[in-house]
């Protein structure tokens, strides 16, 4: 990608593409509504049958995909920068599973308080990220060890999730859907208060993007430049946990967004500088998940494919490709 092309312009193009994606997501479905009809009805305030579908089903789904996509993508980029590991992503190092476990626990023990779930998910995500990070530090672990540690932690947390959902089968409507991940059941009220968490997490991440760039130079270099490395790292990982936790609390265990999107964003940006990459991640993550969700809804019409499965079909080959292309991956961190 052309490096001379200013990063602001790239971001603007991506935002325009996101707007097109939004129109597609709102118009496409088992019943196609043309954009002209959609805008006409919107301007006239005409709430027809079709407009109800758009407003109460497609719009919340779209917003859910946008929020979850940007949150997971930015969380992934932040975790990759802090761990200095391009293979780290919220789902791979067990952050999503941690958030999932706490969401399920929250649903089991406080079934009447669904608005507590984002906070619970955040705690689970934070516990998981700190655990993996602690292990990595303790053992001076290599990239691969971190990934393997994450897989171990993930498997254990998923076992806990299964235990809870076995003992309390009624806690979540659609346990299987939660584990696959998706935004099909999302409505405006279920996005609250997760969206507040996500907005805060995004703002904090963007504010820290310059410091993340310095941190990416290495612990000693960052320290010698006057940074309080421990504090910055902690705040960054906490922000990532807020983002991943909030996303998981309403969209379940969608994997790989936090892995794929940061890589695509770095490719488009032409550099690994987070000041440019993080905003791109937010927009491309939103676009990616919206497109996947629209595909999940429409490709097999009248059946619907869970979003998490569509993402896995794209994400797993991508992950394997990254593993094979190890040498380059080492430099794109």
């Amino acid at each position: 990608m052309n490096k001379k092309f200013p990063s602001g312009a790239k971001l603007a193009i991506c935002i325009i593409l996101l707007i097109f994606t939004a129109v597609l997501a709102l118009c496409a479905g088992s019943r196609w509504i043309s954009p002209i009809e959609l805008f006409g009805n919107l301007i006239n305030g005409n709430i027809s049958q079709d407009m109800r579908i758009v407003l109460y089903i497609r719009l919340p789904r779209f917003l859910g995909a946008v929020l979850a996509g940007s949150a997971l993508a930015v969380a992934g980029a932040v975790i990759q920068a802090v761990l200095g590991n391009p293979l780290a992503a919220p789902n791979i190092i067990g952050v999503n599973s941690g958030a999932g476990l706490f969401t399920v626990l929250c649903a089991a023990f406080f079934p009447s308080l669904p608005s507590l779930r984002p906070a619970a998910a955040f705690l689970g995500a934070l516990a998981a990220v700190m655990l993996v990070y602690g292990i990595a530090r303790k053992t001076g672990a290599s990239r691969m060890t971190i990934v393997l540690t994450g897989i171990g932690v993930s498997s254990l947390l998923n076992a806990f999730i299964d235990t809870v959902t076995t003992l309390y089968p009624d806690v979540l409507t659609g346990t299987a859907a939660f584990k696959t991940g998706g935004v099909s059941g999302v409505n405006i009220s279920s996005l609250f208060p997760a969206w507040i968490f996500i907005i805060i997490g995004l703002i904090v991440s963007f504010m820290l993007s310059h410091d993340l760039d310095v941190l990416a130079l290495g612990e000693n270099t960052a320290g010698s430049l006057g940074m309080n490395v421990g504090a910055v790292r902690f705040v960054c990982l906490t922000a990532a946990a807020v983002l991943a936790g909030a996303a998981v609390s309403f969209s379940g265990l969608i994997g790989f967004v936090g892995l794929i999107v940061p890589h695509i964003s770095r490719k488009i940006s032409g550099s690994s500088e987070n000041t440019a990459v993080l905003p791109l991640c937010a927009v491309i993550g939103a676009m990616f998940l919206t497109l996947c969700d629209t595909a999940a809804r429409t490709l097999f019409d009248p059946y619907e494919m869970p979003l998490g499965i569509v993402v896995s079909y794209i994400g797993v080959p991508f992950f394997l490709w990254l593993l094979i292309r190890k040498k380059e991956a080492r430099h794109s961190a």
């Binding site: 990416a216 000693n220 010698s224 006057g226 690994s272 500088e273 080492r330 961190a333």
Partner: peptide, 19 residues
């Protein structure tokens, strides 16, 4: 304050794609 008085260059290692 230390960073404004003492700079430290660590051993060569690869960093990401940054200009």
């Amino acid at each position: 304050a230390v960073a404004r008085r003492i700079s430290y260059l660590e051993q060569m290692k690869s960093i990401g794609s940054i200009s």
